[in-house]
């Protein structure tokens, strides 16, 4: 049993494997943690939806190494991300910036939710149920009694 638990734990943890190789890592754990943070912000340019932290592509490897070199040289996280954006464009950010061309990404879900709300309200009204209607207590009680019987 204990073995099984250990195996299950090992399998669960192995899901979090990353592409970073031991040879790439910085000796200073604080700097390495920063490198990981930056790497998770940057998209691998040949694999569409992976961060360079996860990707095994060779260019992603080289970008990770560059991130670590810049950190060691004293650049801030933002400076490194800005450098990559200046080379590859906004594409390289995994989380899109809030700007005119990404407006639909950011507010789209809320607009759809709003439309959904209107549709539901319209349907309820159509079915003769006013969503704002206050149901008298005795009616409600009668309803729940009926429910109890079935």
């Amino acid at each position: 049993m204990k073995r099984l638990v250990l195996l299950a734990a090992a399998l669960c943890l192995s899901g979090a494997a990353y592409a970073v190789e031991p040879a790439e890592m910085l000796k200073d754990p604080a700097l390495e943690a920063r490198a990981r943070d930056v790497s998770k912000e940057l998209r691998c340019v040949v694999c569409q939806n992976e961060t360079i932290d996860e990707s095994h592509a060779e260019i992603a490897h080289d970008m990770r190494v560059l991130v670590r070199e810049r950190i060691t040289a004293g650049d801030s996280n933002q400076q490194i991300i800005d450098y990559m954006v200046s080379r590859y464009g906004d594409y390289v950010r995994l989380s899109p910036r809030f700007m005119t061309s990404t407006l639909i990404l950011w507010i789209g879900p809320f607009v759809i939710l709003l439309i959904g709300g209107f549709v539901v309200a319209a349907r309820l009204r159509q079915a003769g149920l006013d969503p704002d209607l206050q149901i008298p207590d005795e009616q409600l009680a009668a309803h729940s009694e009926m429910g109890d019987k079935t």
Binding site: V46, I59, D62, M63, V65, L66, M84, R87
Partner: peptide
């Protein structure tokens, strides 16, 4: 060999 120039040029493939 280590993509320094390639990254500077924004080369992906």
């Amino acid at each position: 060999p280590n993509s320094k120039a390639a990254i500077a040029f924004g080369v992906a493939q």
